[in-house]
């Protein structure tokens, strides 16, 4: 222990150095002391999130059960909807709003070619009444769907004369007219041939005026869908529905 080291300033300043060391140490300790806190914070966060996950898993299970229940309900509703869809489809089919294919007959009605001199040319032509007769005969034979040159014959379809053309569904058609009908082809054929009005076309008239007419049985006939509108002005559904 040598004497010069006992200088008061040196002692005091070294004391200050010690104090400063402690201050730095304190600060550092606090800084690092904070880290375990942060770590424990993170641990808390993790624990909370795990708890949340547990809750969410329970909720997920609940929701899955609900989904299963709803799927069952939906399945039964699907049944109801299917029923409605089927009814609508049937209604559309009956209303003529769908294209039809099936066995049936095709009736071709063409004007006669050689008009004999001095005779009425009208006799050599196919008239709206002829087409109407054929259509009616086909319905008699049980036709389920009929079109004329692609114009579907529905409940409100008029067939009328318009000069040299025929209007079907307000559509102007020119000959030759092809009437397609789906149904029992034999029954349809017989109905057309034996019809009092239509039958004449294929026998005496054809022979007499050279009409280009024919009835063919087909295993596959296509009938177009009704493309027109349907806007009843006076027709209102009866109050008791089916009246």
């Amino acid at each position: 222990m040598s004497k010069p080291l006992h200088r008061p300033t040196l002692v005091v300043v070294i004391g200050i150095l010690g104090f400063m060391l402690a201050v730095a140490f304190n600060t550092n300790t606090r800084l690092h002391g904070a880290q375990p806190d942060r770590a424990s914070d993170l641990a808390t966060v993790v624990h909370n999130m795990e708890a949340q996950r547990g809750d969410l898993e329970v909720r997920l299970a609940d929701l899955r059960d609900q989904v299963a229940e709803l799927e069952e309900v939906a399945a039964s509703e699907q049944g109801i909807r299917d029923t409605f869809t089927n009814e609508i489809e049937a209604a559309r089919l009956a209303a003529g709003l769908t294209g039809i294919e099936g066995p049936g007959v095709q009736v071709v009605l063409g004007d006669g070619s050689d008009v004999a001199p001095g005779t009425d040319p009208n006799l050599y032509l196919i008239h709206d009444s002829d087409i109407a007769a054929v259509v009616n005969a086909l319905f008699v034979g049980g036709a389920e769907a009929i079109d004329v040159n692609g114009e579907r014959v529905v409940a409100t379809t008029p067939i009328r004369c318009a000069g040299t053309t025929v209007l079907v569904n307000a559509k102007r058609l020119g000959g030759p007219y092809t009437v397609s009908a789906v149904g029992n082809s034999d029954a349809l054929y017989d109905a057309v041939i034996s019809d009092p009005a239509a039958g004449l076309l294929f026998e005496s008239y054809r022979a007499q005026f050279g009409l280009d007419v024919s009835v063919i049985k087909l295993s596959e006939v296509e009938v177009s869908a009704y493309r027109g509108s349907f806007r009843p002005t006076y027709a209102v559904q009866a109050e008791d529905g089916d009246a």
Partner: peptide, 21 residues
């Protein structure tokens, strides 16, 4: 020398006790 070490120790102790940062 011992005095200096003691002074240092005293300063450190003081600093730690006051817990100044």
């Amino acid at each position: 020398m011992l005095v200096l070490v003691l002074a240092l120790a005293l300063g450190v102790t003081l600093g730690l006790l006051t817990d100044i940062g």
